[in-house]
Simulated assay, not measured.
Amino acid sequence: MASLEDIAVSAFINILSAIGFLLAFAVLRVQPINSRVYYPKLYINGLRSSPRGSMNGVLRFVNFNIWSYIVSFLGWMPEALKMSQTEIIQHAGLDSAIYLRIYILGFWVHLCMAYIFTLWTSYMLYMEYDNVAFMRLHFLASQHRRVEQFTVVVRNVPQISGHSIAETVDHFFQKNHPDHYLSHQAVYNANRFAKLVRQKERLQNWLDYNQIKFERNPDKRPTSKIGFLGLCGRRVDSIEYYKQRIKVLDNRIASEHQKIIKDPKAILPVAFVTFGSRWGAAVCAQTQQSKNPTLWLTEWAPEPRDVYWKNLSIPFVSLSIRRLIISISVFSLVFFYMIPITFVQSLANLEGLEKVAPFLRPVIEFTLI
């Protein structure tokens, strides 16, 4: 679908072309050398004689009267519009008059059909959007209420001196959405905490595996080497080893949890804001919240399972730069991909392959019979 920029460029080119043709017509029609081209009927009826007969030198071919160019540019239009059908026949002939009638008829038919088609399309779109809105409302009403239907994720919350992110978010939405704002949840930079939790989960899986292995064979306790990839190093009891490592990780996880809660810098400029109605959440998610378009960025909150929490700590500027780099990379890939495609296409037939690789000519021209 064409964008507004594409339409504007196309309109600009068409307008420039029309002005260029009008200028060319205005210049060519006043030249003495083109007199018989633009006024043939006047010559046939004896109403006009060649201006070249009374001129000498270059004046027989080129008109140097500046005022005639100014009058000729648009001055012929009012006179042409005032001409009756009889005058058109006398001036341009019957064929021209018939052509103009067909042209005018086609213009009005096109105009009427364009209006009819536009009205019909608008009506069909209105009915379709009405049906889609009804289906969406019916679907939402038939579903169980979920928290993400009332929640908006807010990014790039500004840091106000003397106030925490949580206080800033609460004050902002109580002031701007007092009738629908319900609560909010600040987001903490817990990437290190999450990394420790994942390590504990992996160790817990190994502990469960060795415990099950021991239950199946109680006569032999499982052992493993604690060196590189379990291939070298001292051999230890697997169950006791993983229990000890999990205990150490539990202490580190508890310490990291307390550190995150007590450190105000751990709070990210991101928050999940919950509203009392879907309408309030929709208004917040689909409108600009600040005069500065880079602050208080809102969008619908995804399901908790769809949130990649690690990315929430990436700054807005960094995200914008990454999007720009990805766009440039995709454009470069698509653009420069045509070079190898063109080269491979040239090898799609034997003649092209023979031109590119002349040393393969004996193989290409080899015949079995």
Rank of each mutant, 00 (worst) to 15 (best):
F173A: 03
G53Y: 12
V236Y: 10
F275V: 00
L42I: 02
A348H: 03
W67T: 13
F134L: 10
A254L: 08
R146H: 11
F193L: 05
K259Y: 02
T294M: 15
L4H: 12
F12Q: 15
T367K: 15
F316Y: 10
T274Q: 08
Y69L: 05
V147G: 02
V9F: 11
P40T: 09
V344F: 03
S10Y: 03
A190R: 04
W67V: 14
L59W: 06
R198F: 01
I104A: 09
H180T: 14
G280Y: 05
A282K: 13
V356C: 11
R278Q: 15
V187A: 11
A114L: 11
A348D: 02
S346P: 00
F214R: 10
L140C: 03
Q185A: 08
S332V: 02
Y129R: 13
S164G: 15
I364T: 00
Q149N: 14
N311D: 07
Y43R: 00
L333I: 10
E240P: 01
V71P: 07
I261P: 02
M135L: 15
F107H: 02
H110W: 00
L295G: 09
F64R: 14
Y308I: 09
E148Y: 04
K225F: 01
K41H: 07
F335A: 04
V30W: 03
S238F: 04
L312I: 12
A282E: 15
N34P: 03
Q258C: 00
G75M: 06
K225I: 00
V157S: 09
Y129D: 06
T342I: 01
R235I: 10
I7A: 11
S72L: 07
Q149A: 08
